[in-house]
Write a protein that binds this DNA or RNA. Structure first.
Length: 410
RNA sequence: GGCGAGGUUCCCGAGUGGUCAAAGGGGGCAGACUGUAAAUCUGUUGGCGGACGCCUUCGGUGGUUCGAAUCCACCCCUCGCCA
């Protein structure tokens, strides 16, 4: 009962089939399991991370992960977790997304281990060439519409509308499982709690077609204490795993800024810090909880962006918020020195760094007293910066309480 | 295919010829308070110009009008009932 229980204690398990048997399997010899990700955007985000963590836990325990990128299923669109039909994306777009997601996934698992190296597959490989009539006869035959209609994901959509395209999604995902069972000996599927219906449907299909038993479990849909989903956990939207979209520094800051109540909970989910260490940290209270968050931020950033980047983000954060250390690692914009003499207003700089989305917005922020230069509130954002404003050859801009940007002139 | 309802700014949702960049709520952001936390209070929440101002927005395209989110025509989409 060890592996399943330890996953469960970390809060990684939500629903499962045949608990006893599953626990036994997980503690037994190497098995092959799969997790799927549909490319619905050009990057994975925090919402995808928990299943990945599980995959890694399982791989660490010796099991073999199959990671499926749903190049085909994304074309159909999973109705789960969606209140309305997905936007209909052209094939080329989704192919592009699939490519970048594949690259990202490489970072999270060991693909080179001899015995249980992870395998990355795209379901285009087998779904693309299906013949419609064959598929309907061989697979569709085993699905009861009555039953599909009672699936939670479909029921939710019965009000707002669901097209046949999305309705048929679970057939395709089930077929994936069947295919992986046949070709790779895959007997376990893991996914988010919204995938339960799809997972169970797949298990059913394998049983009917192959007369074999397979298993599944889901992880909970993680939400912060204030109820927001991890998939869109921040103002600007999701926290992406792509460093181009969410820089390691911002990623680190996200974890630093989680609600006190979530710090330990997230640490269990999103890091590999051992349980007894977490118990230790859980004793901290009040302002000391920040220490938990520092650990959380460091560990989580290491996982996503490597220890080196985590170290840098940590350094930058300490110098900005703790007042000690250098500013080398703070996000920086390089500007030509000639800009100085031409007269650049603070307004311009806040927009150029992206701290403010528009000049109007920057002006508004200024009025509210939310613009700062080198720690001092900027009285007149319209003003041009002067050489005398430079500190150690640069400027430290701050928008609001905690968004910083450094500017260097060269 | 028929009949009925409806498509409003990030979301929900008012608005039914000028006073509408559009009520209200949610969310976001900022300020105060703090611990880079929570709670609370206040402000703010299309873009451009220093301000009086200008520009773009209410499913789409045309039209009526001095003037439309609001009226008309056609079209597209969604929902419900029927087929």
């Amino acid at each position: 009962m060890e592996l399943l229980r330890s996953l469960s204690e970390r809060g990684l398990v939500y629903q499962m089939t045949a608990e006893e048997k599953l626990a036994e399997l997980l503690d037994g010899s190497r098995l092959t399991f799969y997790i799927g990700f549909d490319p619905t955007a050009g990057s994975l985000h925090l919402g995808h991370l928990v299943p990945l963590m599980i995959a890694r836990h399982l791989q660490n325990a010796g099991h073999r992960p199959l990671i499926i990128v749903g190049g085909c299923t994304a074309l159909v669109g999973d109705p789960s977790e969606r209140s309305a039909e997905r936007t209909y994306e052209p094939r080329e777009t989704i192919d592009g997304w699939a490519r970048s997601i594949k690259t990202q996934l490489q970072r999270f698992l060991d693909f080179s281990a001899r015995e249980n190296g992870a395998l990355l597959l795209d379901n285009r490989e087998w779904l693309d060439d299906l013949k419609l009539i064959d598929f309907l006869r061989d697979t569709g035959k085993h699905f009861s519409v009555n039953r599909m209609l009672s699936a939670e994901s479909v029921k939710l959509r019965l009000e707002g509308g669901i097209s046949f395209l999305e309705f048929s999604y679970s057939l395709l995902q089930s077929y994936d499982f069947l295919h992986l069972f046949r070709t790779e000996g895959c007997i376990l599927q893991v996914g988010g709690s919204d995938q339960w219906g799809n997972i169970v449907a797949g298990i059913d299909l394998v049983r009917r077609v192959e007369a074999s038993e397979t298993w599944g479990f889901t992880c909970p849909l993680v939400t912060g204490s204030s109820g927001e989903k991890m998939s869109k956990s921040q103002a600007g939207g999701a926290i992406w795993l792509d460093p181009e979209l969410t820089t390691p520094y911002d990623y680190y800051q996200f974890w630093m800024n989680v609600d006190d109540r979530d710090a330990i909970y997230f640490m269990k989910l999103y890091t590999f810090v051992p349980g007894d260490e977490i118990d230790e940290l859980a004793r901290l209270t009040g302002a000391d909880i920040r220490k938990v968050k520092e650990r959380l931020a460091f560990e989580a950033t290491s996982l996503a962006h490597g220890e080196d980047n985590a170290r840098k983000a940590e350094k930058a954060s300490r110098s900005l918020f703790g007042g000690k250390g250098d500013l080398d690692e703070v996000p920086t914009l390089q500007l030509a020195e000639s800009r100085l003499s031409k007269g650049v207003s603070f307004l311009d700089l806040f927009v150029e760094t992206g701290l403010c989305p528009s000049r109007s917005d920057a002006r508004r922020l200024g009025k509210q007293g939310g613009l700062y230069l080198n720690g001092e509130r900027i009285a007149d954002p319209m003003q041009s910066i002067a050489v005398s404003d430079l500190k150690e050859g640069g400027l430290l801009l701050r928008a609001g309480k905690k968004r910083y940007y450094r500017i260097e002139f060269s």
